[in-house]
Amino acid sequence: MPILVFVESAEGKIKKTSLEAIAYAHAMGGPVTAIALGTVEQSELEALGKYGAQKVLHASDEKLNQGLIQVYSTVLEKALEDENADILVLANSSLGTPVAARVAARLGASLASNVVELPDTTAGFSVKRSIYTGKAFAHVELSKPKKVIGIRKNAAEIKEVGSPVQITPYTASLNESDFATKITSSEQATGEILLPEANIVVSGGRGMKGPEHWSMLEELAKTLHAATGCSKPVSDMGWRPHHEHVGQTGVKVAPQLYIAIGISGAIQHLAGVNSSKYIVVINKDPDAPFFKAADYGIVGDAFEIIPKLTEAIKAAK
């Protein structure tokens, strides 16, 4: 029986986290059917075959260009039925997570979000999910035949395992009443590497002293192809936009590398970064608590170290 994977796109391109969802379903044993909604570049869709999709459904209806939660839930519920699929896999996101929940509720399926590893199917079917804001994990059994799994970044490794596939056009079932909620406008950073998707994050705290100093941090981020993040006081004071705020009450990141500059390492900040593979801390205070959570640390003044680090990285390339 196929596993259905909902893939999200932004500006016509498939999100990297959705490629991880394909890799996850492929590693579960597939066969994988991917479904994309709204306008997406054809070459992007065909390429899904390389990452493990055997079949790619595309509902290109322009009405699907806005990510309306109820609309998407209706389409996916029907697609699961049409494809005779019992399992839906998707990447957790501001759209994916609520859609997963509503589809699961409709189907009476077992639901798990923030899943960090492939399922354990040695006895039954259990998944490991992140809980207590990254401070612990829970192994939970998903006992219903129908399952909806939302994965967290890095739950599976993207690999080239196949070749491009032909796209199967899909007619989405639309329900007028699902459109009652209206998205009137949106504002979104374009051309930037988004925080939840980034492999490397460069993050600044109150130690950066003011928004005018962010250009050096952005320069470092650019050199590393990294996204920029910040601590809560930094977004509270309006130095940086709210969507860059990392931690307990902000974005939880799971990059390969998190570089924290002028951030003290309060437990609420650590809660958002403790799933990072490597952590580098730059702080002028040798007793800053963040060093205890770090892999590499430098004690020193951010304003001296950032430019030097940027240069050293350029030189090493």
């Binding site: 077992s110 401070k135 612990a136 994990f137 829970a138 060093f291 892999d295 640390g297 004690v299």
Partner: peptide, 22 residues
């Protein structure tokens, strides 16, 4: 209910930090 807890797990303790001179 379709979800049952099997067990909790704590992440492995973090190794010690490598300090590098400024």
């Amino acid at each position: 209910s379709g979800v049952k807890l099997r067990k909790f797990e704590l992440p492995p303790p973090k190794g010690s930090v490598k300090m590098i001179s400024a």
